[in-house]
Each structure stands twice: as structure tokens, then as C-alpha cells.
Design a protein around this nucleic acid. Structure first.
Lengths: 336, 336
DNA sequence: CGCTCCTGATAAATCGATTTCTCAGAGAAG
DNA sequence: CTTCTCTGAGAAATCGATTTATCAGGAGCG
């Protein structure tokens, strides 16, 4: 691999001049030409490791997500990646498994690798500690979930409003005993969506006391949704509708319902977070669509702004969710 | 951030000694103790960039996949990541979008970042050029798709056999005019699965000539599957079953079929590649399951073997697919 | 003509860890 | 007692790019 000195020698100039040609310094046009030619002849591409060491900053950003198998995060990751690509940043994708310890390890790596910045969907509201990064001046953007006290930019959706709309939609559809299966107790998304559910129920005149048995915390995974649904069905007075706060748990919930022989529309199911194959489930599922790709893109844009040295005060971008009813898309084959 | 010299100073030794303590050199126990203490007092963690520069190798491996939104690759990525974690390797995930140019750019980055190695699901059988990596002695493992002539280790599944079994299963089910929607013409997986289809049709006494109209190349995406299915349905004598060679295209195919009012079991649909929600589609879909996670894990293991300096001859690991019939799981609510 | 100022280029320092080279001192062998 | 060997440790070179300090040479001005 050709180094900057090889190019310098071939072009008959000093390494410093070569560096200036590529990083914008004043160099006479004639030399610029010589250097460019020598570089392309030798197939020179600068060693990013050496550059990072000298610059004290790599051209890599870290993206920490709890579960890359969750389509929401995959799509978010694409948003980040596409935006990052535009400024020649690479993205390192890290799975935290919602494990604070694993997350901490990745944050250490981000520091040791001198990454340019980090976008993080925090594993825990309380325990995720971003202070070490802040201390080193590394820009951080929180996405999807807000860590509690950290002073960082953030991109979220209005989870409470979304949860409220979702629940209200079920109530409007004539369902009465609406249950809610939400995510882990620590996460801001779980709590906010649940708060939306509670608000909608209150508005409908249902006391908080009587909703209590219908609320279940699970883990945002298929199995969690399944187990929670089984529990709900075993209640003396089981719910006639369920608001599930993420798409993977919805898969589990539908499986559990199917096993019990109860299915939409006999039971109402509403998923927070889009399911790409929602239209294939019979009858089609109503979902709250999350702008996952845009959240990733916005987060990356925010981070890049900070990297460029923006001194703006911290900002939180809140995107809107969109309720997508699917009753109307019942295909002609839905004869039952 | 504390450097190795800070630690050395605090412990009253030279930086060389500190390095030896952490990387296994001969140091007297008493000094080891002093260094360890100083390091933990200062919260020292070695700067990976500096280390990479000196070692001429980073502790990062690149994973290049065509589409991270495809569940197959997500699961494969987890396999790679879990295996890599065990030897303290980080994984950089790169989306190539099946674009040879984008892929080339990522391969360049892998070189410039001095990554320890690369695992690649090649965008193109012909045009993916791994020679530059090989020339630099960077270990490469091909996964899922075999690049044509490259001398690299590989992990694949027996796509032809899988395609044959899948097609045979449809024929056994009583379907006669079986179509095949396969992936991009360049990719080895497309061609091999198609070859399996052709073999099965031949065995059933159908001439290659007459299968020709029933073969469609698409792009392994939802939309591609949709469009191909529309075309097939518009034929004078439309197929009565279709073998779709990946799960995303299957979603598209099912959508197209639904729109036309034809659905399983009136038409046979068999998906190559598992669909996590297969059991929710009515009636449940038969799929060919791919050991995606294991493929990732095996690829990572192979790579690590090379990194450890194994001089073994090149090997190709071929995993088996598993046909998963789902007819029997029809739930009680399937009354139509 | 002499002096200052400016421009473009180079030499050398720098980033932080690893590793080779060199050396001092302890212990063994003669 | 001298010489040789061996071990542990420090000094310094190294990886490759960026950047600061320095310098040479030409233009402009009095």
C-alpha cells in the first residue's frame, strides 16, 4: 500500500505538500497536478488509522441499538447510514441486547477507537451513562429513547400522543376492555406509550384502578408478547382488545390469540410500530407507523451538525407518528 | 484520557514495561502489581488507534451485506457479531445495496482502516473484486454467495439441493405448472436455486422448454416479487404454484396474489428463506429454512482461524437447508 | 540598492502504543 | 576471581498522516 511519502517521492515534493493537496492548503496548480497524477498512479489512499491518530478523531460514528433484528432499528440504521455516507462517515453498528453492561463496553470502545460521535438508543433510562463521552467532548445523539439526565441532542417520536391515538382508535371501534402490552419498565418508550394508553382510557371514563389488571410489561420481543397475551387471556374477564407497543411483540400476541381460537376482528389488535407484512395478516392489522428511517436520518444530521462545530443549544426533534387503519384494505378473498 | 506514558510515570517504570504487562512480556511480579494499580487508578484503556497503527491491524472486521433490511442478513449479522465478540473483535456492518460500486468503496475503506478481515456476501459473482485484499494478505470469507474465482474461504448452503427439494415438494402437493421467481441474474444464490428448480422439473418430466415462461429474475426485494408475480398471472396459462427464492419477494408475491383474489392453497407458494411471521399468514406458508445465524457464526469462526495464522488449505463450509412444511398448523379459526 | 513582506514549500514534531536494540546486573561455569 | 550467559528493563525507532515552525525566494517600496 502506497504511503504519503511514496507519493511525495514520486511527485518530487514533500509529504506535507501531498497532504495539503488532499486536505485543502495552498499549493501551486502545477504541483497539484503532479501530486494528483502520482497518487492515482500509485493507487494511493490515505491510511485512515494514521490520520485518526493524528487528528484525534476517526471518521467513524457508532450506532448503538438494543436489537438489530427488530425491523424498527434496522430501518433506523439505514437512515443513519445513508445520511452518514454523504459526509464520508462510516457507521459501526453495535447490538446492546438491552444489556447495560454490554452497552457500557461498546461505549468504552467508542472512546478507545476515538469515534467521531455516537448515536444511541439507550438500553436503560436510568443506568445508561453517557458522561464519559460528554467529558471527552464526543458528540452524542439519543434516538428513540431519551436517557434521563444526559445533556444530549435527541430524536424521538411523540410516544404518548401516539399511544393515546392508538388506544382511542380501539375504543372508537367499539372495544371496551382494552389491554396494553408495553416494553421494559425502564425504557422511556414503554412508559410514554403506556402513559398515552392511560390518558385515553381516562378520557373514556375508565378508572386507572380498573385498567391495572390489563397492563403488562414485557421485553419488546416476540416471546414477551406471546407470554403477556397468554396471561391476559387467562384473566377472569379477559380484554376484548389489546394495544401492543411494538411490532415484534405483536407477532407474539397474534400467535397466542390464534392458539386460543380468538382472532381479529373478534378481538382488537393494534400495533405500535409498523409491520412490513401487516397487510398479509388476516384481517389486516391497524398499526401506528413510526418514521424509523427518518429518525435515523435526523439523528445523523444532528450529529453531523455537532461535528461541524455547531454551538447551537441542545435540541430535541420530535417526529409524529401516523395511525394507519387497515380495515379498508380487506382483499376480495376475505370472504369469511 | 490517560496514555501509556501517564501510567508508566505513575508506576515509576517505562512505557515499554507497561505495554509488556498488558500484552504478555516478562515482567517481575512486583512491577506488574505497580503497573496494574496505576492503570486502574488512572482508568487507563489503551488507545486502539495507536495500537492499530503500530500493529498494522485493527481489531475490527468488516461485514458487507447487500441489504440489512433483509431478515436473513440481519440474523447472519448477529451470528457474526456474537462469534466476534468472543475474541474482542468489533464488527462494522456495511450495506452494499447490491451495488458493485458501493461495495468497492467499502472494500477500499476496509483496506484504509486496516481492518483485520472481511466477511462478504458479494454483490456480484463476476464483478466483486477481492484481489486487492488478498494482495495485502487480508483474510476474507465469502458468505452466502460465492464470488467467482476468488481464492477465499466460504460458507454457503446447498442452494441447488434446497431449490430441488422445494420444487419437488410443490410437485408432490399436486401442483403442475410451477413457476420460479429467483434473484438477480448475477448472484450465485439465484442461479443455484433456479438450477435446483430446473432439476426438479426435469425429474418430473417437464421439458426445460416449457418451464421457460415460468421463470422470472427479480431483485430479492418486496417490489420485485410483486412485479414478477403480476407478470406470471398475466400469462395465457398462469402457473398454479410458485417457488420464490427469498422471503422478501415472497411478501410481494403474496400481495400480488391477494390482489388477484387467488390465494393458497388454490395456488402453491413456497418461500426460500424463513419468514418469522410465516405462521401468521393464512394458510401458513411452507418455507425452506436457512441457517442464517449459523452461517454468520461459521464465517466468523473461519475468519478468526485465519487471523490466528492457520495455514490450512482454503475451505468451503456447506450447510444444509431444512424444508419446513406448515400445512398442519392451520389454526382453529381457519374456517373459510 | 537594501529592506520588508508575503507566498509556497519543506523539515521536523506530533499523535500513542509496540517492539527492537542495548545495557546493566545477577548467577553460573571454569 | 574472571568470563560468559541470561533476564528484566529502559531508550529509542517505528507505524503514516497532519501541522507547526522555519526557510527560501520573489515582489513591492522607499
Amino acid at each position: 500500500m502506497a504511503t504519503i511519502s511514496d507519493v511525495a517521492r514520486a511527485a518530487g515534493v514533500s509529504p506535507a505538500t501531498v497532504s495539503r493537496v488532499f486536505n485543502g492548503g495552498r499549493v501551486t496548480p502545477e504541483r497539484v497536478e503532479r501530486v494528483r497524477k502520482a497518487a492515482s498512479d500509485l493507487g494511493f489512499s490515505p491510511n485512515r488509522v494514521a490520520r485518526s491518530l493524528r487528528m484525534q478523531r476517526a471518521s467513524v460514528i457508532g450506532l448503538l441499538v438494543p436489537d438489530i433484528e427488530n425491523p424498527f432499528f434496522t430501518s433506523l440504521a439505514r437512515g443513519v447510514e445513508d445520511a452518514a455516507q454523504r459526509t464520508n462517515l462510516s457507521v459501526v453498528l453495535c447490538n446492546t441486547d438491552d444489556d447495560v453492561e454490554k452497552e457500557r463496553r461498546y461505549l468504552d470502545i467508542a472512546l478507545a477507537e476515538q469515534m467521531a460521535g455516537v448515536i444511541v438508543a439507550a438500553a436503560s433510562r436510568k443506568h445508561t451513562d453517557l458522561s464519559a463521552l460528554a467529558a471527552r467532548g464526543m458528540p452524542v445523539v439519543a434516538v428513540d429513547r431519551r436517557p434521563r439526565a444526559a445533556a444530549v441532542d435527541a430524536v424521538t417520536v411523540d410516544n404518548q400522543l401516539g399511544g393515546e391515538e392508538a388506544t382511542a382508535h380501539l375504543l372508537d371501534g367499539g372495544y371496551e376492555r382494552v389491554a396494553c402490552i408495553t416494553g421494559p419498565a425502564g425504557a422511556s418508550t414503554s412508559e410514554d406509550r403506556l402513559a398515552g394508553y392511560r390518558a385515553a382510557m381516562r378520557d373514556a371514563g375508565v378508572s386507572e384502578e380498573s385498567t391495572r389488571p390489563y397492563v403488562r410489561y414485557a421485553d419488546y420481543r416476540v416471546d414477551g408478547g406471546y407470554a403477556a397475551t397468554r396471561e391476559l387471556l387467562a384473566l377472569p374477564s379477559p380484554p376484548d382488545a389489546v394495544f401492543v407497543t411494538n411490532s415484534l411483540m405483536t407477532v407474539g400476541a397474534l400467535q397466542a390469540l390464534r392458539e386460543s381460537g380468538i382472532e381479529p376482528p373478534d378481538v382488537g389488535v393494534l400495533s405500535f410500530g409498523d409491520v412490513p407484512w401487516a397487510s398479509l395478516v388476516r384481517p389486516p392489522l391497524t398499526t401506528v407507523q413510526l418514521p424509523s428511517y427518518d429518525m435515523g436520518a435526523s439523528a445523523a444530521a444532528l450529529l453531523q451538525e455537532r461535528l461541524a462545530g455547531s454551538g447551537k443549544p441542545l435540541q430535541t426533534v420530535v417526529l409524529r407518528t401516523a395511525l394507519q387503519p387497515r380495515e379498508s384494505t380487506r382483499g376480495p378473498a376475505a370472504r369469511d
